[in-house]
Design a binder for these strands. Structure first.
Lengths: 178, 178
DNA sequence: ACCTGAACACCGTTCAAGT
DNA sequence: ACCTGAACACCGTTCAAGT
């Protein structure tokens, strides 16, 4: 006799995302996720192939969220500021997606592509279409590195980090402007 | 009756470092390290407090190696090129140290400080001492982001990645030069 | 003084048995 | 058709017992 579903893939991915942010990737265990959605760990395998695949789904959902937010911004400066705001709101997801450790399951390229569209467009307007790709890579590399360093406490030498961010935005925008 | 030592902290850290590079952080288990140095896992605890502490020691040794290499370079361009070479030679260690995931044990700040000296000096020469810190942060953020993206395959849109690197170096150096 | 097997509490994952 | 307990092979870590 069929049993009504007690959970769903969406609920599982949401639970995993919350767990990642609240306690880090190591705490994202099948047991902990199962407990959050109200089943036992083995039941999760009816909906997700493995823990790695679940992590990949979280990464992909994160990129979708990020793409939505960046797509509403127009200038390189506001895109990059929104990028930083996203990193501060969801630091663990940001690191998972933008600076994954060796061995971490990666989001499919299609998700990364969507998230890169806003920056590609903004950079193209400043640098010219023929240099859009190089310019976008310069901006994204800088912003990703900066935010990642900020999130993991690498700015240890004092100084005003917000000022360094503003300095960077200004210089990078000038650097890629034709 | 005393037994002669069958391993050493140095051998353990070296084994851990090699394992990290060969198979990733997840494969850096106490069992695998013990096997490499020729003892059983429990014996490692005579020399290292925990797996987390061992990972931290690997991170700190990596920063020492990096500092040695960067200190021999003089210009921002050559420092940053050497930084990239290091990342390509030891991608897993690079990621562990420069873009650690949430929950990863971090190297003590003193080790990070040593590794940042060369760039701080180089950036100061270009930007002036009063902007050395902001300029160094801009350079390091860009280079770290670029190399990290390169290592984890984030440059998926084609184009010449070496050309994007050269473009970036040139623009960043110009951007921070007073 | 160092090393070890056995043990503990955890993992991820599989699978037969339940409803 | 979904869910579960039990089981398996692994983790990191502790500790009493060996030399």
């Amino acid at each position: 006799m069929p049993t009504p579903d007690r959970t769903s893939l969406d609920a599982i991915v949401t639970a995993a995302r919350d767990l990642l942010e609240a306690e880090g990737l190591a705490a994202l265990t099948m047991n902990a996720v199962a407990q959050r959605v109200g089943v036992r760990a083995p039941s999760l395998y009816k909906r997700v192939e493995s823990r790695d695949r679940l992590i990949q789904l979280v990464a992909e959902a994160t990129l979708t969220d990020l793409a939505d937010r960046l797509s509403e911004e127009r200038s390189v400066a506001t895109i990059v500021n929104e990028f930083r705001a996203f990193g501060r709101e969801r630091p663990a997801a940001f690191q998972l997606v933008l600076t994954p450790a060796s061995g971490t399951p990666l989001a499919d390229d299609s998700f990364r592509f969507v998230a890169s569209e806003a920056i590609l467009r903004g950079a193209g307007e400043l640098a010219g279409e023929e240099h859009a790709l190089e310019a976008a890579r310069t901006v994204v590399a800088w912003a990703t590195g900066f935010i990642s360093m900020e999130l993991n406490g690498s700015f240890q030498l004092g100084g005003d980090v917000d000022a360094a961010w503003s300095y960077g935005v200004e210089r990078i925008v000038a650097a890629i402007t034709r």
